[in-house]
Design a protein around this nucleic acid. Structure first.
Length: 424
RNA sequence: GUGGGUGUAGCUCAGUUGGCAGAGCACUUGGUUGUGGCCCAAGUGGUCGUGGGUUCAAGUCCCAUCACUCACCCCA
C-alpha cells in the first residue's frame, strides 16, 4: 500500500459536498460585490516568492517546496496566492485596461510545516485582492464581505481583530521606540523574542508566551505613532465598519508574518481551533506591486484558511449530500436491459436518478434505494413490461402510482410537478 | 526542526498475570411468490502499523522504525 504524503489529505465524497457549498457561497458573494475570478498556476519561479514574501521569513527560509526544474530553474509550489496575482496583474498589464481590479481565487497552497490541527502541507485558501484603490472604504468592504460570508456559512465564535501597521513614513519612528523598549526588558523575554527583538521587533508583540505578554503589557502601540494620513485612513476604516454594524476590536499586537503589509491589517480569530486560531488574515500592501516591477498601484487583500473554515462551520456535511429522486429498480435481465436507457434519460433531463446494475432481487433493491435516501423507487419487472406501466413508489408515504413507460421522462416530470404542487 | 499521546476488521473500540483474534455498527445472504426502515439468524472481512529481539508460546514484554495526532516554532 502506497501511503499518501505526510501533511496531504484526500477530501472524500462525504465531505466534498460541503466544500462545494462553501466554495459556491464565496463565489456568489464575491461576484455580487463586483469581484472576478482569476486562476493563477500553482507553481511560480522561486524568485517571485523570495521578493514578495521576504527572504528572511520562515516561509521562504524553510517552508517552501522548491526544486530545480529540468533545465535547472528553481521553481516553487506557491505558499500563498497574493504574489501570483500581483505578478499576473503586472504581466498582463491589467492596470492598463483598468487600474482598479477586484479579484478572487480559490485553490491549494503548499507549505512544508509540521502538520497539526487546522494545518496541512497542502491546504486551501479563498483569496481576495483589490488593486488600484487607496480608499479606506475598500478596506472596510473586505472586512464586511468576510462578515457576511462567515454569517452565511454559520461560523460562530469568531472575532475581527484590526490594527494599522503604518507606512514607510511612520513605521521607522515606532520601530525605533519599540526597539528601545525591548532593549530595556531583554531579560524578561523568552529566547525566541530575544532573537526577534533584533531581526523583526514587531513580531515580538504577538508572542504567545504568557511571561512575554505580561512584561509587554505597556509596550508602545503603533497606533500612537501613525502619521496624519495613516491615522485618518485607519479612523475612516473604523468609522465605516461601525456604520455597517461590523463588530471589531483594535488589537495593537496584531502584526503580519509577511513583509509586504502596511496600514490596515486584520485577522479573524476563532476559539474552536486550538492553537491554529486564525481562520483569516489580511491587510494592505501598498508597495508590493511596484516592488515586483509594476506601476505604483496600491493593493489590499485577504486569505481565508479553507480547511479551517470547514472545521468551524456549523453546517453539516451530511446536509449537502444529494440523494436520488428516482431509484430505478429493474428486476431481471430483460427489465434491466429495458430500464437502463430510461434511467439515463431521466438523469439527462435533470432528474437525479440512480440505478442498481448488479441484478439483485427486489428486496435488495428496495433496501439499497432506502439506504441511498431515494424519494421514489421505480419498479420495473415482467408485469410492468407487459402492461406498459411501471410502479412508482413514494418511499416516505408508501403510496404507489402507475406511470406509463411510453414517454417516461415527461410522465415522471408531470407526476413530480403535480405532486409537489399539491403539497404546497 | 523539537516534544507528548495514539496505532487491533471499512468505522468506534475491547483484549485479564504472555496461552486458539473479539464485540457493536457497517456490509452480504436468509427469515417461502415482486416491496425498504424495526426485529431475528447466518456469513464475509484482520500481515494486531512495520522490522528485529526475549520466550515452549507475543496483540500483550524489550529495541528500532513508520504513520497518525496534539503542542512548540510559524502561519490561513
Amino acid at each position: 500500500m502506497i501511503q499518501l504524503i505526510r501533511g496531504f489529505k484526500d477530501i472524500l465524497p462525504a465531505e466534498a459536498a460541503l466544500w462545494q457549498h462553501i466554495e459556491e457561497t464565496a463565489r456568489a458573494l464575491f461576484e455580487d460585490f463586483g469581484f472576478h475570478e482569476i486562476r493563477p498556476p500553482v507553481m511560480e519561479r522561486t524568485e517571485l516568492f523570495k521578493r514578495s514574501i521576504g527572504e528572511e521569513t520562515d516561509i521562504v527560509e524553510k517552508e517552501m517546496y522548491t526544486f530545480a526544474d529540468r533545465d535547472g530553474d528553481p521553481i516553487t509550489l506557491r505558499p500563498e496566492a497574493t504574489a501570483s496575482i500581483v505578478r499576473s496583474y503586472i504581466q498582463h498589464k491589467l492596470y492598463a485596461v483598468d487600474p482598479v481590479q477586484k479579484l478572487y481565487t480559490i485553490g491549494p497552497m503548499f507549505r512544508r510545516e509540521r502538520p497539526q490541527k487546522g494545518r496541512y502541507r497542502q491546504f486551501y485558501q479563498i483569496n481576495a485582492e483589490v488593486f488600484g484603490l487607496e480608499s479606506p472604504f475598500i478596506d472596510a468592504q473586505l472586512i464586511y464581505i468576510l462578515k457576511v460570508l462567515f454569517e452565511r456559512l454559520a461560523v460562530n465564535d469568531i472575532a475581527v481583530h484590526l490594527n494599522s501597521l503604518g507606512c514607510p513614513e511612520c513605521r521607522p519612528g515606532f520601530r525605533e521606540n519599540l526597539t528601545n523598549y525591548l532593549g530595556q526588558r531583554m531579560d524578561h523575554l523568552c529566547e525566541n523574542c530575544q532573537r526577534r527583538s533584533v531581526r523583526n521587533p514587531m513580531r515580538v508583540l504577538d508572542c504567545k508566551v504568557p511571561a512575554c505578554r505580561e512584561s509587554l503589557a505597556d509596550a508602545p502601540a503603533i497606533t500612537d505613532f501613525l502619521c496624519p494620513d495613516c491615522l485618518r485612513h485607519f479612523e475612516t476604516v473604523q468609522e465605516t465598519l461601525s456604520r455597517q454594524q461590523v463588530a471589531f476590536e483594535i488589537d495593537k499586537r496584531l502584526v503580519r508574518g509577511l513583509d509586504y503589509y502596511n496600514r490596515t491589517t486584520f485577522e479573524i480569530l476563532t476559539g474552536s481551533l486550538g492553537a491554529q486560531n486564525a481562520v483569516e488574515g489580511g491587510g494592505r500592501y501598498n508597495g508590493l506591486v511596484e516592488m515586483l516591477g509594476g506601476p505604483s498601484q496600491p493593493g489590499i487583500g485577504f486569505a481565508i484558511g479553507f480547511d479551517r473554515l470547514v472545521e468551524i462551520t456549523a453546517l453539516k456535511a451530511a446536509d449537502f449530500h444529494r440523494t436520488p429522486v428516482i431509484f430505478m429498480a429493474a428486476i431481471g435481465d430483460e427489465a434491466q436491459s429495458e430500464a437502463y436507457p430510461w434511467a439515463a434519460e431521466l438523469s439527462k433531463a435533470g432528474i437525479r436518478t440512480e440505478m442498481d446494475l448488479t441484478g439483485r432481487n427486489l428486496k435488495s433493491l428496495m433496501k439499497r434505494a432506502d439506504r441511498l435516501g431515494a424519494r421514489y423507487v421505480a419498479i420495473v419487472g415482467e408485469n410492468e413490461l407487459s402492461t406498459g406501466k411501471m410502479v412508482l413508489r413514494n418511499m416516505a408515504t408508501k403510496e404507489q402510482h402507475d406511470i406509463g413507460i411510453d414517454g417516461i421522462v415527461a410522465n415522471i416530470r408531470t407526476f413530480l410537478e403535480t405532486t409537489t404542487a399539491t403539497k404546497e
